[in-house]
Amino acid sequence: MIRKNTLAILLLASLAFLKPALAAPVEQPETVCIQCHGTLPDRLGAPVKLWRSSIHADNGISCNGCHGGDPKDAANAMTPQRGFLGAPKEKDIPGFCGRCHPGVYKDYLSSAHGRALGAGGPTCVTCHGNHQVVKASLALINEKSCTRCHSFDRARAIRDAMQQTEGYIDDISRRIADFQVSGVDTEKMGKSLFSVRNRFHTLFHDVDVARVKGESAAINKELGKLDAALKEIEQSHQKRRVAGGIAVGFMVLLALLFHLMKKSYD
């Protein structure tokens, strides 16, 4: 009985240590917006279904994060007095998203896309969607999407210029995720990568091939630093594996010596 309890305590303790590494996406209590609109049909309920698989939902950004209002008071949730903004008009969409994404907003406004705002040009949701916004990747730059408005030639040139660096970012991201699962403190590296990735993806909004190529060199240098830090951890783990193997061999040798010594007393 005591042994079983001890085992249970040890198991729980080890799970407690695992918790930070395997932390689930941010979970917050459902807002009144979700509670109500989640049960509504068609146009009024559809945004909730889309939002549930978005990067915003993964990070605890609920309806009120963008649309304002009071997420705790169902009766007054959608009143202007509680800061409810509703859905923006098309020309106001970039400013709406730009409240939380000011860097991208600035680059967008100075780009050909931004300059065509209000004159048929694309807004954020044209490429990223609205409620089902997912983590940005180069997959967003594709022929089907871009040719809705213009030829794919220039977009292809930009995507090709970004491809190699994107691959480098993905590789580093995967390695950091692997280390995180195995319990390595990756917070600083994760934040550095987020910063670099953000800088890199922002480049596209400028729609300038020369700038993409020029900035990619500086970004690759930053990624090189992360790569070196990860290699150092990988080498350290490799050394530990070798040391572990030697330690096990050593223990076997020690056990054998003890066994032989014991036999000499028989």
Binding site: R99, C100, H101, P102, G103, V104, K106, F194, S195, N198, T202
Partner: peptide, 9 residues
């Protein structure tokens, strides 16, 4: 006279 983070404001 303040700092702004370009990623999330």
């Amino acid at each position: 006279q303040q700092f702004l983070c370009p990623c999330h404001g």
